[in-house]
């Protein structure tokens, strides 16, 4: 009984999301058949062919380049965001200075900075990295600061009573208590960072998946563009899945995240 229920649950958990993908693919195929200009909506087998070509060509280099941009931009953005949040939570004065700047910059899309980024860094690694950095800085900063400010003051008192120094309170009480919020921010940051990366590579770089889209566009290869877009979607999904995995293993103690054993 239990086993078959488990199997059903497993199948459903895969079939449900898969059914949406299948519906999308069928819709695309129909559109390609009725479209006046099939080059604009290439059928699936053409996209698949382009994907295979891509895999035999520069795909690995493109992915490595993109992940390198992401690591540099997201890494610095996440670390700076977290540090700024700690400083703002600790020092009222820092918060008073940083808060208005952050609130002003936050609604400005990273994409708006492309012209300035190209002027500053030239076409190359710098533009996508800067854009990813800019996009990922704010979600993690805002979430981490909120998480740190919500730390239960009784836990801080308990640690102090047990003999913890101020530094130990930060590293062993405040940071772990704020970790769920930091993770929520990191996932948002990674998402918007990935979006900003494609935009930055599209116009400001000569490597990466975004650059590959631009390359195919110049040859008017819509199937090449579509194949690259599919790859971008899959890797973006996998990166979030990776972060979710890390989240549930690090937050095993939290009933809201890791769940009970």
């Amino acid at each position: 009984m239990r086993r078959s229920a488990g199997l059903r649950h497993f199948l459903l958990s895969w079939l449900e999301p898969l059914s949406g993908v299948v519906a999308l693919a069928v819709g695309w195929q129909i559109a390609s058949m009725v479209a006046a200009n099939p080059t604009l909506v290439p059928p699936l087998q053409t996209i698949w062919g382009a994907l295979v070509d891509l895999a035999h060509g520069d795909l690995v280099n493109d992915i490595v380049a993109s992940l390198f941009h992401l690591a540099g931009g997201f890494g610095t953005g996440a670390i700076l965001g977290l540090l700024l949040a700690l400083l703002c939570a600790r020092f009222e004065l820092v918060a008073a200075v940083i808060d208005p700047i952050a609130e002003f910059l936050r609604p400005i899309s990273a994409i708006a900075w492309i012209p300035i980024a190209i002027l500053l860094f030239g076409v190359g690694q710098g533009v996508p990295m800067f854009l990813i950095f800019y996009a990922s800085l704010f979600p993690i900063f805002v979430n981490a600061l909120d998480g740190i400010r919500r730390v239960d003051p009784t836990l801080v008192r308990a640690a102090e009573m047990l003999g913890a120094s101020r530094r130990l309170v930060v590293t062993h009480i405040v940071l772990p208590a704020a970790l769920p919020a930091v993770f929520a921010g990191a996932r948002l940051s990674l998402g918007v960072g990935w979006v900003a990366m494609v935009a930055g590579e599209l116009v400001g770089a000569d490597t990466g998946l975004g650059y590959r889209i631009e390359y195919f566009q110049e040859f008017f290869s819509m199937e090449g563009v579509m194949a690259t877009i599919v790859v971008i979607g899959i890797i973006g999904y996998l990166l979030d899945a990776l972060l979710r995995l890390l989240q549930s293993s690090l937050l095993r103690w939290s009933p809201a995240h890791g769940g009970s054993r």
């Binding site: 239960d152 009784t154 836990l155 008192r157 308990a158 640690a159 102090e160 009573m161 047990l162 003999g163 009480i173 772990p176 208590a177 970790l179 103690w253 939290s254």
Partner: peptide, 21 residues
Amino acid sequence: TGPAPERGVMFQDYALFPWRT
């Protein structure tokens, strides 16, 4: 002058650290 290990406190709501076993 402040909290110290010589004066241990047991809190009403336990105040255990949820991320520690």
